[in-house]
Design a protein around this nucleic acid. Structure first.
Length: 267
DNA sequence: CACGCCTCCTGTGCGC
DNA sequence: TGCGCACAGGAGGCGT
């Protein structure tokens, strides 16, 4: 569900609420088959939250005692204050009397307290590529990384290694904008630069609209993102391509639904 | 090491 | 109406 624009929208609302707050009590719903879901959360009680940052789809909140709270929304995760719901998986009681609830129907999300910067138990975060809207995401390095892989371009983007935060929606959108076939295994320098620009454009526009809501994604204030009506490729199979009127085609690639224009995104 | 398949979990919507 | 199946925005483990 939530990709970079959704996570950033949540982060922007959480940060002013949590900065400087101390956690006085922590509760979570243990699931025997998912020990990783809330690892280290017992360390959170008594800690003060210094800020709420973000890397890709991970929120990273520095704590005192040189610890960090890592939060990932998975497919269906959301945060709300003072919410009572059967799908609430964790609750943080704060020193201002409010309770932050983490709701996650499918339980693919996670929260973890780790030593600051120690991401050994979170491999995707450890190997995470550059932030797409920062200067560290530069066209030449991106092109070089695409040259080195033999994977089809879309699954490679979803690995989070060439760039952080791109998921299934914005991968389809960016590849459509850059006119690149999602299955292409040979993206040259020129097309890599077009894709670099397209990723930035698509993500920045989605952040402006506070993300894409289909069903589960909501911000901390309960509101939906407004980007769904602006999607061109994702979820729009059989509708005409806005550039060439050819019906968009939906396929499965790397196990994920993938929509693209068979004419303007030729191999 | 890199890649690609399968799985984790729950809910929803569709076709029969 | 009811059942069974496919699919859903993500990531991690494991086999090749």
């Amino acid at each position: 569900m939530p990709e970079l624009p959704e996570v950033e929208s949540v982060r922007r609302q959480l940060e002013p609420e949590l900065t400087g707050r101390r956690v006085i009590k922590t509760w979570w719903d243990p699931h025997p088959a998912i020990p990783r879901e809330f690892s280290g959360l017992e360390l959170l009680t008594g800690r003060t939250i210094r800020s709420v940052g973000r890397r890709g789809k991970f929120m990273v909140a520095p704590l005192d005692e040189d610890l960090e709270l890592i939060m990932h929304l998975g497919m269906t995760g959301s945060f709300r204050f003072d919410l009572d719901d059967p799908h609430v998986r964790a609750r943080l009681d704060l020193d201002d009397g409010r309770v932050l609830s983490f709701r996650d129907v499918r339980r693919f999300g996670r929260m973890a307290v780790v030593e600051a910067g120690d991401y050994e138990t979170i491999p995707t975060l450890k190997l995470l590529g550059p932030e797409p809207l920062s200067d560290e995401f530069d066209p030449s390095t991106f092109a070089a990384s695409l040259r080195r892989t033999s994977s089809p371009i879309k699954p490679y983007l979803l690995s989070q290694r060439p760039v952080a935060g791109v998921g299934n929606i914005y991968a389809d959108e960016a590849l459509w904008l850059a006119k690149i076939n999602p299955g292409s295994r040979a993206v040259g320098s020129k097309r890599a630069r077009a894709l670099h620009a397209a990723i930035r454009e698509v993500l920045a526009a989605a952040i402006e609209r506070e993300g894409t809501t289909f069903s589960d994604y909501a911000m901390v204030n309960g509101e939906s993102g407004r980007n769904a009506d602006f999607l061109i490729a994702y979820g729009r199979g059989d509708t005409p391509c806005p550039r060439c009127r050819t019906p968009l085609r939906k396929i499965t690639l790397g196990g994920r639904g993938t929509t693209y224009c068979p004419k303007c995104q030729r191999r």
